[in-house]
């Protein structure tokens, strides 16, 4: 067909029979059917991981910005999460395709405590903090989001990386049967990301399980993701199933796809030109005028020392 129905009409149509509700209903039915095995345990664990559930009152943090929050609806309906579809409105529509129960994280590589961990093992729920961070996407838009989590360093210290662990590699879930975006090789699945160990241990780097006081919605990377606020958004890998301590710089998904556009570091930097987007300015979602983009997304004071002596045009 030549003429595609406009997206807004799609929304109107889906309002008649919301596919998300439809799928969730199906999932619910399936869970009911499977509920015979471990009914009580299933309800308890399953209940804890449901998006929308509040996370109590996490501690506030001096690292939070006092800028105006992006409305939660915007932060949960304008997403880059290619596993759930390639358009901004796809991840929220396809959210139910991500199965977060059961969920484990494999820890491997140069550390003293490798093994299979539950989310709760990595993120002590009594130490949750709220961190209100600026999020700067490489596509020149930005948001202000109140994340809930613990410093990644808290979790990594428990895993006791050895001196050979110079980088940390992360991997997102691979589930092409359920995740619509993984049915085509738009990226080389699974999505992988990595940080230098000092970046991973930096107190700003957050191992995140919630936002806006609630459990992470699937489209925002449930049940566990990281948030690295001084780097472009794609570095903050979602729905993590594997953490590996490695010696050499690990491959990263967008860098593999288009090496001249997305570097390993991908620190927010208004001075480094990008082939697609001028990075000098950004549109804060909800605003009309564009803002000037700040060095390291405004976190220069905290993180600039990590890169002293490095040519940031070369290591972009």
């Amino acid at each position: 067909m030549l003429i595609r129905i406009p997206k807004r009409s799609d929304e109107k149509e889906s309002a008649v029979t919301d596919p998300e509700i439809y799928r969730q209903r199906r999932v619910f039915m399936q869970q009911c059917a499977a509920g015979m095995a471990g009914l009580a345990g299933g309800l308890l664990v399953g209940g804890q991981a449901q998006a929308g559930l509040t996370l109590g009152t996490p501690r506030s943090s001096p690292y939070s910005t006092d800028e105006e929050l992006t409305p939660m609806h915007a932060a949960t309906h304008y997403n880059n999460f290619y596993e759930l579809g390639y358009k901004k409105e796809d991840p929220s529509r396809n959210a139910a395709a991500l199965k977060t129960e059961p969920w484990t994280v494999e820890v491997e590589g140069y550390c003293e405590n490798p093994g299979t961990y539950a989310v709760e093992d990595l993120v002590p729920m009594d130490q949750l903090e709220e961190r209100i961070y600026r999020l700067r996407c490489v596509e020149a838009w930005s948001m202000v989001i109140p994340w809930v989590g613990v410093p990644l360093a808290t979790a990594l210290k428990k895993l006791r990386p050895t001196s050979q662990a110079r980088y940390v590699a992360f991997q997102t879930i691979l589930d092409p049967e359920n995740l619509p975006g993984q049915r085509r090789n738009v990226l080389d699945w699974p999505y992988v990301e990595g940080l230098r160990i000092d970046e991973a241990m930096h107190p700003l780097t957050l191992l995140t399980v919630g936002m806006y006081g609630q459990v992470l919605p699937n489209q925002n990377g449930a049940p566990i993701r990281i948030v690295v606020p001084w780097k472009y958004g794609f570095k903050s890998i979602k729905s993590i199933v594997r953490i590996r301590f490695v010696e050499g710089q690990p491959p990263t998904a967008w860098n593999q796809a288009t090496p001249n556009e997305y570097g390993f570091y991908s620190n927010v930097n208004p001075e480094v030109n990008h082939p697609r987007w001028s990075q000098r300015r950004e549109r804060r979602i909800g605003e009309f005028r564009k803002r000037k983009t700040l060095m390291f997304n405004g976190y220069a004071e905290e993180v600039a020392h990590l890169y002293s002596g490095m040519d940031l045009h070369k290591y972009f």
């Binding site: 997206k7 807004r8 304008y78 901004k88 838009w141 549109r283 979602i285 009309f288």
Partner: peptide, 12 residues
């Protein structure tokens, strides 16, 4: 026009 209406205008 969605979360980023100016982008929607340009794209559409």
């Amino acid at each position: 026009l969605g979360v980023n209406p100016l982008e929607t205008l340009t794209r559409s």
